[in-house]
Write a protein that binds this DNA or RNA. Sequence first.
DNA 1: GTGCCTCGAGTTCC
DNA 2: CTCGAGGCAC
Length: 716
Amino acid sequence: MAMGVGMSEEGMRPVTELSRTEAVAEWADLVQAVLAANQAYHRDDAPTISDADYDRMKRRLAALEAAFPDIEATMNQQSPTSMVGAAPADGFGKVAHRLRMLSLENAFSDEEVTEFDERVRRFLGLTDAVAYTAEPKIDGLSLSLRYEAGRLVQAATRGDGELGENVTENARTIRDIPQSLTNAPAVLEVRGEVYMSHADFSALNQRQAAAEEKTFANPRNAAAGSLRQLDASITASRPLRFFAYAWGEVSDPLATTQAAAIARLNTLGFQTNPLTMLCAGPEEMLAHYRRIENQRATLGYDIDGVVYKVNDLALQARLGFRSSTPRWAIAHKFPAELAWTELLGIDIQVGRTGALSPVARLQPVTVGGVVVSNATLHNENYIAGRDSKGNVIRDGKDIRVGDWVQVYRAGDVIPKVADVDLDRRKIGAEPYVFPQVCPECGSPAHREAGDSVRRCTGGLICPAQAVERLKHFVSRNAFDIEGLGAKQVELFFKDTLLPVKTPADIFTLAARDAANPLQKLKNRDGFGDVSTAKLFAAIEAKRTIPLDRLLFSLGIRHVGEVAAGLLARHYSTWSAFEAAITHATPGSPEWADLTAIDGVGAVMAQSLVEAFQNPAERAAMDALVAELQVQPVVARGAVDSPVAGKTVVFTGTLEKMTRAEAKARAEALGAKVAGSVSAKTDLVVAGPGAGSKAKDAERLGVELIDEDSWLRLIGE
DNA sequence: GTGCCTCGAGTTCC
DNA sequence: CTCGAGGCAC
């Protein structure tokens, strides 16, 4: 057991008095204790220690790491304090959102806003103006509040949109969030933004500083940190606020327009933003944007743009959603904050697919409340001014080491180099020469005509590619082996005693360790009996793997999660897939079958074929599969609708909806929409003026219905 | 064939 | 975010 468990902090020795050996010992024990507590809490749903003790342990860990910064790196073990976002390592249960919490499409210019309006009207087939609400976009964190029978029963953070964190107890401490509602629908999910005002933020930071606690970089971080306290009494002491602006599941509609729904939320007792305004069209929207922009500095809280939403909820329903954003809303972002700094150097990183990416090493500079010292330089052309023939490159900035460059944080996260100040160029600065060989393995780095990326041709020979491939292999949506993250993989890759060079090596680790009587893994720093056994068990648990995950894990270019799913559903077993790809060459029946999969084109097919023809890749795959039991893929649970799984063709003039709308609607119900009628077609929906396609349907004996019957069929 | 739209892949930082 | 693939309409 850890020394600190159950003890008061006053009873502990200050970390500064500890020797390195003592610190390491205590650190290792604490890590074990915290991990065990995590497991008890999350997996077994049976907490073994109080939240306060847990919190204390994590604080002690953080203190140890602050005093001995290299501790984690030297211990071959990831600390729970650094497992950010790593599942529920931080102590909150997960909550599945009944209705996904989506993100918004962004607009960065007036033109993009008018285009948005045009797109909306085109989709709906409307020439008349469409009305929109416009409201400030609060820079906080979004929260979904669920009320049943008028009582607050659950509060969840956005998370990845599907799964959020359960922060109910913390949300109950926020004054702007009502505990109960009167005259509310039986089920009501209210969504909005938790934020902290400027005044409250500076007061909090003063308090924190006085108490020698850590201060926050900005109000957003302060709000996020405060809401995600394991101890709700700490959240209660933090001045959090809440604006409601949307809803999830509701048993009865709140209203028929966005504006009225917001007003209703206000009546129910929620704070809604006073700058929310109804606009008749793009001109008024942009005028309101300027108005909000002008008030930005005096609002008293952070905002990062203006959100526009189609006002009519019936139109919102018709517009529907794309994969992760609604078609009926857009966020008009304020221009990103910019900062100038000196470019100290340019490094080249080699990615999983061999892509050579230039990274700027910068004189550290504060951008949007965060200190940035690295930033992406995009690609070869972006840095270059002229190509090898001396021609000026379009969009090329001619960036040289030593230059003054402008940096911003794109999407408020990823630092990018936006511009260079040629007037401040130092005399003698040389143009940057992009490497023509891989800096990691020395293989030639080729660039295909028309491609912006130069790639190392070393394949698995290149250590950088090999290790990046391994990191991908163990990543969350791939094999996801507990206790074997990116850091560990890197260490094992370099290890001389128990090297892991390919995915198959992971599955021989335990056997190789057992075969080596002298230097057992469990005797190493950072590994004990328990953690070694746990790691081996975690690896063992992933020996059985569904085909789609396996295909994604292979890291073949152009084959991501979705493509892997398509392939797995088509071939069902590894042996069928393997046989097909091995025999596929352009023109063969296997090739035709492969490219006939909806969503698989020639590029992806070629990429698969090349991977299978490469001896090193093939050997690595064969060795891996020999270690595994690959599960055939179970067919995806179909959407429950009368047209699910059917192939539908729309033809003629549709009168109640546009073609795009009909397609989107049908797809949302699980149907596949095709352009031409064939034997595979299940249903043809014909409007007036339908011609050859209706005849094709008759000829092929495909069911033919009119638009009204279609609408009845799908229940509208 | 061209010009949209949409989505997926790949990349980056803290 | 940016780029490119894939698919569709014209």
